[in-house]
């Protein structure tokens, strides 16, 4: 048996003789067509995959406005923003002092308290543990606030301090501070 017959018939006369091993089937035309078709398929595939990214209405989602007036010192509220909980805590003087004092402590994710707040008494955080996305405890008066007086994630035992910084446990980073701005003294807009 000499070779698969398909090659002998598929080949042009001359080419077929030059490369009797049948590899000339992958000639330029063949490759060009395949590459062209492949590119088209990949681009179409991209359009499909991109359709799973956040849509225009999701991206344009209205920002959330929060009224700070009813929150007494030492209290915290949870609001929803982009489908996730946002913690707004009215910190007491001791909590602020503690947070500042710990700026120099050994922090897994070092960041001074001043970089995490716009006005000292108001701490605004994304209430999502940076470990695996659970919502930490510490918002309600009865909740465990962890060993550092901030938040405690019950899923895998991460402790956060009064600045929302990670102090102990598996979480790699501090609780995230969302973009927000003070509309006036008693209102903030998150997002």
């Amino acid at each position: 048996m000499a070779q698969p017959d398909s090659t002998t018939t598929a080949m042009g006369e001359g080419e077929g003789r030059k490369h009797p091993d049948g590899t000339t089937r992958r000639d330029f035309l063949y490759l060009a067509s395949a590459a062209f078709a492949g590119t088209g398929a990949a681009l179409t595939g991209w359009a499909f995959i991109h359709s799973m990214n956040p849509a225009a209405d999701v991206l344009a989602l209205a920002s959330t406005e929060v009224n700070l007036q009813p929150i007494a010192p030492g209290q915290a509220i949870t609001v929803t923003w982009r489908g996730k909980p946002v913690f707004v805590r009215h910190r007491t003087a001791e909590e602020i002092a503690k947070a500042k004092a710990d700026d120099s402590a050994a922090l897994p994710d070092p960041q001074p308290d001043s970089r995490r707040v716009q006005r000292e008494q108001w701490l605004v955080l994304l209430g999502v543990c940076t470990h695996l996305g659970c919502v930490p405890l510490g918002q309600k008066p009865a909740d465990s606030k962890g060993d550092y007086g901030g938040w405690f994630c019950p899923c895998h035992g991460s402790h956060y301090d009064t600045s929302g910084r990670i102090r102990r446990g598996p979480a790699p980073r501090n609780l995230e501070v969302p973009t927000y701005s003070f509309v006036n003294d008693s209102n903030i807009r998150i997002g």
């Binding site: 018939t9 035309l29 067509s33 062209f36 088209g40």
Partner: peptide
Amino acid sequence: LFLFILTGLLYATKRKVWRNI
């Protein structure tokens, strides 16, 4: 435009493949 070029390429390929049949 893409499809016209692709069609041209595939037509040429088809012609080439079928040349000796």
